[in-house]
Write a protein that binds this DNA or RNA. Sequence first.
DNA 1: AATGCTATTTATAAAGT
DNA 2: TACTTTATAAATAGCAT
Lengths: 141, 141
Amino acid sequence: MGRKKLSMRLIENPTSRQLTYNKRKEGIIKKAGELAVLCDTDVALIMFAPSGRLASFASNGRTEDILLRFVDRPDELRGGPINHQEFLSQKLKQLKYEGEMLEKIAVYYAPNVEKINSALEAGVYQQFLTTAIQRIQTSKI
Amino acid sequence: MGRKKLSMRLIENPTSRQLTYNKRKEGIIKKAGELAVLCDTDVALIMFAPSGRLASFASNGRTEDILLRFVDRPDELRGGPINHQEFLSQKLKQLKYEGEMLEKIAVYYAPNVEKINSALEAGVYQQFLTTAIQRIQTSKI
DNA sequence: AATGCTATTTATAAAGT
DNA sequence: TACTTTATAAATAGCAT
């Protein structure tokens, strides 16, 4: 959409690139919010600038603990050896604990409540978790 | 966009809702991919249907380890007590280890490489990590 | 750098198959 | 239950401020 059709490759000019980034970032966040409302859907959207710093995050904030549901429904893992399944459950529980610890730490270090979304600490925590997600995704492709 | 303007509230008709969900899901994924290419940006997009099941995930898969950069640059935490800083570093390292374990587990359980994106296991792992991210975000707001 | 303005392109709501 | 089409709404690229 625009005066010209934009070819799908890196925008060379840094100023234009930043401008496009800001505009499209807003657009995607809006779309994500609409999808959440229209379809009762949880949407998490995480964007990182090339610097690696967290650029934006959007979610409708539902907090169901899917982990516990998973642990309570082992039949969803049918086909896996029982010992590995137990191992997996333990690992998930352990990671859940780590996540809660991380949450507490994040709260403790929050230096400025008004700047939460751009706080360096938040960026580091969230990117770390996101990287973990990406590792899983990458490792399975 | 469409024959009529859609009011921004839950689509009551389940069939229409599902249809809209599928269409808009594709749209957002496309947008996310475009943003990644145009602006050299890492984008992670995670959507959950009301059932809680992972619906989609998109990322350009960058894998920088921001954690280590963080640990190696303690001045970014200036203002925090040293003992808490060390505590934080240890926790992050521990979580990194857990993430790597989780990756190995994910690989082990991958039942069907062709269906990676819809694999239930992947959904559980990713939603768990996403929930952790959301917790951090929520706790700071 | 940030905001506002249109010409265009793109996404998509309904309808059709 | 999906795909395809089409009219329309929405997003946005390039400019202007």
